[in-house]
Simulated scan of single mutants.
Amino acid sequence: MTRPPAKSGSPTKPAKNEAQTVAGRLLAWYDAHARVLPWRAPPGEYADPYAVWLSEIMLQQTTVAAVGPYFRAFLERWPSVGSLAAAPLDDVMRQWAGLGYYSRARNLHACAQVVAGEHGGRFPDTEEGLRSLPGIGPYTAAAIAAIAFGRRATVVDGNVERVVSRLFSIETPLPRAKPDIRAKAETLTPDLRAGDFAQAMMDLGATVCTPKRPSCNRCPIVSFCSGREAGIEETLPRRMARKERPVRRGACFVLTRSDGAMLLRKRPAKGLLGGMMEVPTTPWEEAEIDEAAISLHAPAAAKWQRVPGLVEHTFTHFHLVLTIFVAQANAREAAKAEGVWIAEEDVGGEALPSVMRKVVALARPDAGPLFRQP
């Protein structure tokens, strides 16, 4: 790793004893500097598989800071995989609301039911067995196998990609570099304490080998970093230029009754935000909104008023811009409206995704305190 990369762009393979030294230094650093996280066991100990699985599913596309409160709330409500499996899916979706990527919550519930029903409440202890479960892919299977069961498994998340890219001067842009990064990470994974090593790599990337201004002076393996030696560490990992996200537009209808109840409806189980609750909305399309046709999608023939401002929200594959309309239904209109009337004080406890919480916040700024977060 102190050698310069070959001209082909593929760094030379490190000597076995060199890789062992890297692993040893990282583990010693982790013993002294490991982050204290609610789902972790102390260095040298195996963590609860249920806690590792739950945290890894939550951490996909989400930050550690955001996950902490949700993780604690889930454990308090469902302290075992069996209790989670027995919970109604709607309750799980409500508890998940705000974490985003809601297919994860559906897969979480499905996986809990398989573990409880087919595995006696015990997670498989191998990568192969774990990958057979709903919602568990290669990364999550490796993380659980290593951290919870001590298996020699190579765990590669975004932090590890950055560390390995810099350590080996991998200049191929992501995502094309992923196979090479994984192969190089595999050469470093020790036979013993693979779980601690994986978490050490994650912690190094999160706290030292950061995307901008890495603290190389605090890095326990800086002497092995060919990216640092070449002075290109801050440019790694390289990434292919992203395509600009298309913009979709729509309108939402916030309908209330005289008692303050709000009309919500449930989205189809499959598809974007599947199974979540929503404020009635038009289809989300790339064409400009035809305001003359908007009334065709309104849940009631009420006196709709447009709310000043727009709600914007970015999904993985598109950016959404919503126009908001509000109205108060009379008794006849309320009876005909299609959806579910939710009492004002209960709206915050519904499984409303973040974009719909933004909608309600713009339409009903006084309702903000009603939204319960873990």
Rank of each mutant, 00 (worst) to 15 (best):
T256G: 05
A143T: 12
L59N: 08
L352E: 05
A105E: 01
L99M: 01
A293K: 15
K303T: 10
Q61V: 04
A146Q: 07
L54I: 10
Y30G: 00
Y46M: 11
A73W: 14
E291S: 11
A293G: 08
Q328Y: 00
R25G: 00
P268H: 13
V340T: 13
L75I: 03
S295C: 07
T282S: 15
A116R: 08
A301W: 05
G135Q: 14
D346F: 09
A34H: 05
T314C: 06
A141G: 15
N17W: 09
H33Q: 03
E186K: 03
S10E: 04
W53V: 02
L322H: 05
V347F: 06
L320G: 04
R104I: 01
T323G: 10
A302E: 05
Q328F: 00
P179Y: 09
W341M: 00
G24H: 11
A177E: 04
M240E: 14
K16S: 03
A65M: 12
R94Y: 10
R372S: 00
G150S: 12
V347K: 06
M201K: 12
A287F: 05
R242P: 03
V208H: 15
A47W: 06
D31N: 14
E345A: 12
E291V: 10
V64Y: 14
T256A: 12
H119R: 12
A41C: 13
Y70N: 07
P14T: 01
G158H: 12
E229V: 08
A206Y: 13
A143C: 09
C252E: 08
